[in-house]
């Protein structure tokens, strides 16, 4: 309970239904100051709904939320004064230039124009958009728009940032730039709440993650400890038409866990040597041996079935 007192964001027992269908079913969250907390989950898990509840954009059916010490939704307006939001889908203002987007958004926070004008050059720099400051946003690439959205979320110098899939749809270059910016924000002491489908992103950025499915948090902890806790340390992925046959003949009996999708088998083991030795000797099957990662935890806990 004590950790909740200073929590930039604390939510308990959150519930939300849409038309009799409960999409958030008893979620508890407590962020620590200055951390990056990852909310992971398949499509439709309830991540965005959870963020909307925490921002006071929709009322919970049950539960308590406190953001930066303010009760939400009752005092959500006051809380949002010190929160930055990167929404899942860009909603930059197409009627304005890049600079005007920042300026107009800043005014929504009642920030004086003189303060805004002093702040905007730094944000343009942060977004790498200084040279394009006076162009309309239609001409920007997806990565530029995302960077601008992130810069816009910083216009009020927030203590707490909500980032809903900040890198979905971006190429690796753009993704790395965003990651670097987010690390920068952590260094400045800001607290981040991040949702993502990229386990790699969560492993790189988040000190703690929660895996959410069907509106519930089903696992929570540091990425590395979730990996040791839930899955075997080594994975051998085997590809090819005969991979399932190989698994039945050999792989399954030598693995702690062996799963397949189509022509790929995933064998989870503590000791990969027997599998790798067999595959090398046999030839003809392509394989990859790697260490287990958060994605393996995610797939184990949420299953390999499609969600939509």
């Amino acid at each position: 309970m004590n950790s909740r007192i200073n929590a930039p964001l604390a939510a308990s027992g959150l519930r939300k239904s849409y038309g009799g269908n409960e999409v958030v079913c008893g979620v508890d969250l407590a962020l620590r100051p200055g951390e990056c907390f990852g909310l992971l989950g398949p499509n439709g898990a309830g991540k965005t709904t959870t963020l909307r509840l925490c921002l006071g954009l929709t009322d919970p059916d049950a539960g308590h939320i406190e953001a930066l010490g303010h009760a939400v939704p009752a005092a959500a307006r006051v809380a949002r004064q010190r929160i930055g939001v990167v929404p899942q889908f860009d909603n930059l203002d197409p009627d304005f230039t890049i600079r005007e987007n920042l300026r107009v958004f800043g005014r929504y926070f009642d920030i004086a124009d003189s303060v805004l004008e002093a702040r905007i050059p730094g944000l343009l720099e942060f977004a790498g958009l200084t040279s394009r400051a006076d162009t309309r946003i239609q001409t920007l690439s997806g990565g530029m728009k995302r960077r601008l959205t992130l810069a816009r979320a910083l216009i009020n110098d927030p203590e707490l940032l909500f980032l809903d899939e900040p890198t979905t749809g971006l190429d690796p270059q753009a993704r790395h730039v965003i990651w670097e910016r987010l690390r920068n924000l952590l260094k400045q002491g800001k607290t981040l709440l991040l949702t993502t489908h990229f386990m790699e992103e969560a492993e790189r950025l988040c000190s703690r993650v929660a895996i959410m499915d069907h509106g519930r948090i089903i696992a929570e902890g540091e990425p590395q400890s979730l990996i040791t806790q839930h899955v075997e340390p080594h994975v051998v992925e085997v590809y090819g038409e005969t991979a399932p046959q190989w698994a039945d003949d050999f792989g399954r009996s030598r693995s702690e866990r062996c799963e397949g999708t189509g022509e790929t088998m995933f064998c989870y083991v503590h000791d990969p040597a027997p599998l790798v030795g067999d595959l090398d000797g046999r030839g003809g099957l392509r394989y990859l041996h790697r260490r287990a990662n958060l994605e393996d935890v995610f797939l184990k806990l949420t299953g390999r079935d499609l969600r939509d």
Partner: peptide
């Protein structure tokens, strides 16, 4: 344009 959504993320 979802302009309102953006505004609602501000106070």
């Amino acid at each position: 344009q979802k302009t309102w959504d953006a505004i609602l993320n501000a106070p």
